[in-house]
Design a protein around this nucleic acid. Sequence first.
RNA 1: GGUCUCGUAGUAUAACGGUUAGUACAUCGGGUUUUCAUCCCGACAACGCGGGUUCGACUCCCGCCGAGAUCACCA
Length: 479
Amino acid sequence: MEIVTRFAPSPTGYIHIGNVRSAIYPYLLARQNHGKMILRIEDTDRERYVEGATELIEDTLEWLGLNWDEGPIVGGPNAPYFQSERKEIYHAWARKLIESGRAYADPTPPEKVNQYREECNKKKIPFLYRNFRPDTTTEWEPGMPLRFKAEPKDYEWVDEVMGEMHTGPEVLDDIILIKKDGFPTYNFAHIVDDYEMGVTHVMRGVEYLSSTPNYLAIYEALEIPRPKLVSLPHILAPQGNKKLGKRDGAKSVTEYREDGVLAEAMLNYLACLGWNDGTEQEIYSKEELIERFSLSRIQNSGARYDETKLLWLNGQWLRKIFNEQGPRALYERTLGFWPKAAEAYSEDYRIKVLSIIYDRLKTLSDLREMTGYFFADPTINTEMLLNNKFLKKNSKSEIEEMLKVVISRLNKIDDWTSEKLQDALNELLEQTGKKPAELFSLIRISLSFAPFSPALNLTLGVLGRETSLARLNAVARAI
RNA sequence: GGUCUCGUAGUAUAACGGUUAGUACAUCGGGUUUUCAUCCCGACAACGCGGGUUCGACUCCCGCCGAGAUCACCA
């Protein structure tokens, strides 16, 4: 049987890292089995609806490379994929339930319901609406919610992650199927949609585990088969033991993209947070994840979100792309992350800069801070030079003298390549009798006035003869 | 409070009932001609507690403790 999974977010804002994973796993499962993934927008709560949220969700999924086979934009045989446009479908199924006596109109005003609830809370007994069930012969009219009529009993089922589950009759209640505004609740709508759309695996956060018996009762009453149920443990906030949410400052996936985190790294990190294939592999491409994924190896406890590891993985991916696909492939990912001054330079030059600095990047946005001196002469800061821990024992005149020796030697280089430059630097060490730390710091700082920079011969090589010598001369004059 | 779930180093995780409890991130130390990083080497560090079952338990069972979820006309 074809495997059909779905990601069914509600458009209430951006997708943050706490909840993308419930899009990743369904995607992997569907691709692995040559099945389908559906994107369905659960927009039945008009109060929480956020304009533009659907686009944000689509954008995030596309960036991560999680393409869907049915849903908004691409369409499909089960359209529409917005729940707000499927009202008639829910009502048709609801009528079926009314006819079989498993749903009833509830004329009780909300205040009364709250009153019942408070009474129970006061008596410290569980609140079950079915104990307050009103006259169930009322005709269902607009403006009146429709409730499920529960038949308390035991339920057993298998959760693909949590294993065998069982509950008693005390968890079953008369839940609302259709709200008074005519829109269905999640509890009802998702069941109808999943069935109509042929979803075989319902993957969602563990918070739905407690409601599952009620869903099971609805499947039964509707006389439709139940899909496989997969509860995904929460991603926990860095502090505390609560699930990661926007209130914890959970960043949107888009935000990480803007910070220069690669989609590959994001997908890799999130997929492996709460899942592993049993090997010691750390770096997985999307294709490898699709191949190796298995429901049975999803962890059943929550996993804490660790941004440091994400950034480490991002560094790994940055280097992997550079080494395996070449400088140009990585360069293409860096567009938009360069300092403004870089615009005046050729692509070729920028690729050279990238080639010597890429292994120092944690995120692409580091380029802005780290490459400034390749595109504009740095401001000369004599303090920085004289107070450097390797240089401070030298007097100004000694520094000036050293610079002159360096300049005259570099001037003699006929072929300005990193190899020749390295030879010249080695000779200078012998000639001056200085330690590398001392001589190289002097040159490095004079060229960049940056806290750090790539290997000296490479920096000189990329900067070029003219710029390098001009900067060294400028420093010699300023001292 | 009822119901359900979870519990290996700081973090993410591995381990047919038999291993010096493995790996990665982080941290600390060292190495690679400056710096920052990469890379390499090394160190620190864990089975929540208590009972069983067993020749032997991180692994199976029970109890406790701790953490979380849920008990909405939100999803």
